[in-house]
Amino acid sequence: MTTRQRTRVTVNGRVYEREVEPRVTLADFLRHDLHLGGTHVGCEHGICGVCTVLIDGLPARSCLTLAVQADGMEVTTIEGLRDPETGKLHPVQQAFVDAHGLQCGFCTPAFIMSTVELLRDNPDPDDEAIKEALGGNLCRCTGYETIIASVRLAARRLREQSGPA
């Protein structure tokens, strides 16, 4: 159990190299070793989706992923979205604020990560596409209405930002 494995992960553009116990989950590694506490943990068995991060650009449950499995990969967490210089929120984050897409905020980083990935591939999703993309994320507060509204607002702003095709 004390065997450690050298693991090199790029998180939010920064390279981290650590000796990691194989049983440590990516969620625990991010939260406790790298002190990136914005990725939360809700069930640790892969249902609630609260721990969602992007691994090589795709949403993944960081509670079901071992840190050593992320060796050589690029991970994006909620901390990687804000402009590091100005602190300005990412358009998806700002849309969740403006459209009241959260209450307690515990599941919110995961919804935002899933949304970032959705809008990268589908800049104008309809409600069905949004539900499909966010069906793996549980929210106990909002009843999802304002989350859908936030995604639509973010999509509109991102489309406006990127200008006419």
């Binding site: 506490g37 901390e79 929120l89 984050q93 969740f96 604020v97 905020g105 980083p109």
Partner: peptide, 18 residues
């Protein structure tokens, strides 16, 4: 707009496990 939200969408709110 809620005063609570910027920290929550940034992942910087100090939930207990942090």
């Amino acid at each position: 707009r809620r005063v609570e939200d910027p920290a929550l969408v940034s992942g910087s709110a100090p939930f207990i496990d942090n």
